[in-house]
């Protein structure tokens, strides 16, 4: 197993402490993220996902608990949290609303410039980030406000990738995009992960996306960490997930129901391709 890059220990976040509106958004959550892994985070709306990921890059200070990046406490006195934010890149929901520069190039360069890199390095990183997000070179000089919704989203993601984060956190990166745009962006993210050997955390409501990309899945319910296991194991507990108001991939649900009707030799599957393989194995490949 590769090394631990980010470690959360007993994270608690309470909003509005001492007022009638007090709310515990995250309750005693501990976990470890490893280098070069792809983790999916799922949970109902209001389960604390957004709060949790903002704690991971030091935007929210946990009420209790500690976060370690490469073994160092990020809320220690002299810790440079701006540097942390370039190491733990966070792509917010609907990130296209944060674009502000005159040109795509300048906007993507905002992050690297804030890191204090020299112009050569910045230019190199912008070029790479545009490549990773599938933005054509022609768009360099265009205004980000003239682009289509999908392209804006790519520019915003490129703005984070250009900082070359070791951990890339994406909050619903595909919300509101067409299916083609969704799969392209996820493919871009996977490519970044592979080439940079980075850790990716994907927050998503699409169980298909999580099942197809993540190797581990973290399940949150009402601020509590309910499960953290391999994608296979988590989705095999489909009934528990559904009780939490969460979905599971359609094909996984079909197989669960088949098993409930007596086909107990069927395994838990995550994708239609896997399902076909299993069925072939069961029927001896005798498909028509």
């Amino acid at each position: 197993m590769s090394e631990v890059i980010l470690k959360a220990e007993g994270l608690v976040e309470v909003y509005g402490a001492g007022t009638p509106f007090e709310k515990t958004a995250v309750n005693n959550v501990s976990f470890e993220l490893y280098e070069n892994e792809f983790v999916g985070v799922i949970g109902h709306t209001g389960s604390g996902k957004s709060t949790l990921i903002q704690m991971l890059n030091g935007l929210i200070k946990p009420t209790e608990g500690t976060i370690y990046f490469r073994g160092e406490d990020v809320w220690a006195k002299k810790y440079d949290r701006r540097m942390l934010r370039s190491n733990v890149g966070l792509v917010f929901q609907y990130p296209e609303y944060q674009l502000f520069e005159e040109t795509v190039e300048k906007d993507i360069a905002f992050g690297p410039r804030n890191m204090g890199l020299n112009e050569e390095e910045v230019a190199l990183r912008v070029e790479q980030a545009m490549h990773f997000t599938g933005l054509s070179d022609k768009l360099r000089e265009s205004s980000p406000f003239e682009l289509s919704g999908g392209q804006k989203r790519r520019v915003a993601i490129a703005g984070i990738l250009a900082m070359r984060p070791r951990v890339l956190i994406l909050d619903e990166p595909t919300a509101g995009l067409d299916p083609k745009g969704c799969s392209e962006i996820l493919a871009n993210v996977r490519e970044y992960q592979r080439e940079e050997r980075a850790t990716v955390v994907l927050v998503s409501h699409s169980m298909e996306d999580v099942a197809a990309n993540a190797s581990r899945v973290l399940v949150l319910e009402k601020g509590n960490l309910k499960m953290l296991a391999s994608t296979q194991e988590v989705f095999a507990r489909g009934e528990e997930l559904m009780k939490m108001g969460l979905n599971i991939p359609q094909i996984t649900r079909i197989f669960l129901q088949l098993r409930a009707r007596g086909h107990e030799n069927l395994p838990s599957v995550l994708s239609p391709e896997e399902a076909i393989r299993c069925l072939d194995a069961v029927t001896g490949g005798g498909r028509k």
Binding site: N57, L59, R85, P95, Y97, Q98, F110, G111, M163
Partner: peptide
């Protein structure tokens, strides 16, 4: 927060 995440 989004700009802080980009090092602003």
């Amino acid at each position: 927060n989004a700009q802080k995440a980009r090092g602003a």
